[in-house]
Amino acid sequence: MTPLPDHLRQATRARTQEAENRARAALAELAKAGEPISFTAVARLAGVSTDFLYRSPELRSQIERHRVKGGSASAAPANPPADSSTSAAVRALSARLTLQQQTHREEVAALRKALEVAQGENLDLRRRLARYEAD
């Protein structure tokens, strides 16, 4: 495997550092708000993956320390983050589906209106044709 050029290596380091800073800020924000701290909650708030947090020894130890500080709360959030991430996905898909349904309803309403106009024009043309043929 060929080594990365310096500019790519620097960009990678900068991106990683930025993600770590976001994770630290998210951890501080959760702690300040008194929210349950879990890898999923920090990852969601920071916009990073849970894998990223687990692979970073410093961040991992900070998150685990905060979870231990929570005492009895540390056992409770163990399951809800998975559920909340699942329900977050369900909520996102549900919102998308609702938006699509609304769009389809509007399209159907517009098409029905256009069909009514076309049927009215068709009826008018038939009446004119019937008068023309009667003469």
Score class of each variant (00 low, 15 high):
Asn122Asp: 09
Arg13Thr: 04
Glu58Cys: 04
Thr12Lys: 01
Asp83Thr: 08
Gln102Ser: 11
Ser38Cys: 14
Phe39Thr: 01
Ala89Phe: 12
Ser38Val: 04
Ala19Asn: 11
Ile63Asn: 01
Met1Ser: 09
Val108Glu: 03
Leu93Cys: 06
Ala14Pro: 02
Thr16Lys: 08
His104Gly: 08
Ala114Trp: 01
Gly70His: 04
Leu45Thr: 15
Leu97Ser: 14
Gly120Met: 05
Leu111Val: 04
Arg55Gln: 14
Arg67Ala: 05
Gly47Thr: 09
Leu125Tyr: 06
Ala134Phe: 07
Arg44Ala: 13
Ala88Phe: 09
Leu45Arg: 15
Ile63Ala: 02
Ala114Thr: 00
Arg15Gln: 09
Gly47Glu: 15
Gly70Arg: 12
Leu53Trp: 02
Ala46Phe: 01
Arg126Phe: 08
Gln101Gly: 09
Arg91Ala: 09
Val48Asp: 01
Asp83Glu: 13
Arg22Thr: 03
Asn21Trp: 02
Ala43Gln: 06
Val68Met: 11
Ala11Glu: 09
Ala89Asn: 15
Pro36Ser: 12
Val90Gly: 03
Ala130Trp: 07
Ala82Phe: 15
Ala14Met: 07
Asp6Arg: 11
Asp51Ala: 09
His66Thr: 02
Ala92Arg: 03
Lys32Met: 14
Ala76Trp: 15
Ala43Asn: 01
Ser74Cys: 14
Ala41Thr: 04
Gly34Asp: 05
Ala95Trp: 05
Ser87Pro: 00
Ile37Asp: 01
Ala130His: 10
Ala110Cys: 10
Gly47Asp: 11
Leu99Ala: 15
Thr50Tyr: 00
Arg60Pro: 02
Ala73Trp: 06
Ala88Gln: 07
Arg9Ile: 00
Val90Tyr: 13
Arg112Tyr: 04
Phe52Tyr: 03
Pro3Cys: 05
Gln119Ser: 11
Asp135Cys: 05
Arg131Phe: 10
Lys69Asp: 12
Glu64Leu: 11
Thr86Val: 08
Ala28Pro: 05
Ala88Asp: 12
Arg24Gln: 07
Leu4His: 04
Ala46Leu: 05
Pro57Thr: 08
Glu64His: 06
Arg128Trp: 10
Gln102Ala: 11
Tyr54Gln: 04
Leu99Met: 11
Arg9Gly: 00
Pro81Ala: 13
Val48Phe: 03
Ala75Ile: 10
Glu18Met: 13
Ser87Val: 12
Ser61Pro: 02
Pro77Asp: 14
Thr16Gln: 06
Ala78Met: 13
Gln100Val: 11
Ala88Cys: 12
Ala109Leu: 12
Ser74Lys: 13
Leu99Cys: 06
Arg128Tyr: 06
Arg60Gln: 13
Glu35Arg: 15
Arg65Cys: 12
Gly34Arg: 15
Met1Gln: 04
Ala110Lys: 10
Glu35Trp: 11
Gln62Met: 07
Ser72Glu: 14
Arg105Asn: 10
Gly70Met: 14
Ala118Ile: 13
Val90Ser: 07
Arg65Ile: 14
Glu18Leu: 10
Met1Leu: 07
Ala134Ser: 08
His66Leu: 14
Ala25Gln: 06
Ala75His: 13
Arg65Val: 12
Gly120Lys: 09
Pro5Lys: 05
Leu123Asp: 07
Leu59Pro: 02
Arg9Pro: 00
His7Ser: 08
Ser74Ala: 07
Leu30Ser: 04
Asn122Gly: 07
Ala78Leu: 15
Leu4Pro: 02
Ser85Gln: 08
Asp51Met: 04
Ser38His: 00
Asp135Ser: 02
Arg13Met: 05
Leu4Tyr: 03
Ala41His: 02
Gln10Thr: 06
Pro77Tyr: 06
Glu106Gly: 04
